[in-house]
């Protein structure tokens, strides 16, 4: 009995510890409906920069992955800041980063802050940058700043005015 209780307690502690460590970065991206004669789904990229404007991690890039002969890569450079901030040296398609373009709607991306490229971020100011560029359309770049580490849940909201809709960054420490 005593042994059982101790084991159970230990298991509970482990569970609690695991939960407390499950730090996440969640990015909500809304792509607006646009009343235009010729609509192409936008190319969208998101990446993380530190306070010195250095790229810490590529988060996602949506482009026309299905075009024959990789022809969809032709428009990647229209996400001008993303292109120079690592996009142009990224081997595409990239596992866990690249995906197909999306139409108007709400999309949620979650990244672990415990493992992978976002683990062990040094203390400092950061910003998630989201850029969208649309063929025969415009381009928009939105920054979502935050400080890491943080002891409580942090939510940063911004809204685009043309190519991007509502954007929300949630940091769950």
């Amino acid at each position: 009995m005593t042994i059982f209780r101790q084991t159970a307690l230990a298991a509970l502690v482990v569970a609690a510890a695991t939960q407390a460590q499950a730090a996440d970065l969640t990015l909500d991206i809304q792509l607006p409906e646009l009343a235009v004669a010729e609509y192409h789904k936008p190319y969208v990229a998101a990446w993380l920069e530190n306070g010195n404007n250095e790229v810490v991690a590529q988060l996602t890039v949506w482009y026309d992955v299905d075009k024959r002969n990789d022809a969809g890569k032709k428009w990647l450079k229209d996400m001008r800041q993303w292109w120079r901030r690592g996009g142009r040296s990224l081997e595409l398609p990239a596992d866990g980063i690249s995906g197909a373009t999306q139409g108007p709607g709400d999309y949620q991306l979650t990244y672990s802050l415990d493992k992978g490229p976002l683990a062990n971020l040094p203390e400092g100011d950061y910003r998630v940058r989201v850029e969208a560029a649309r063929e025969v359309g415009g381009r928009e770049l939105i920054n979502l700043p935050f400080h890491w580490p943080t002891s409580e849940k942090t939510i940063v909201s911004e809204a685009g005015s043309s190519e991007l809709g509502k954007l929300r960054l949630t940091i769950q420490p």
Binding site: D70, K73, K74, W83, R88
Partner: peptide, 8 residues
């Protein structure tokens, strides 16, 4: 001046 993709 800034191009992406193969054989632009």
């Amino acid at each position: 001046t800034v191009l992406s993709g193969e054989k632009a």
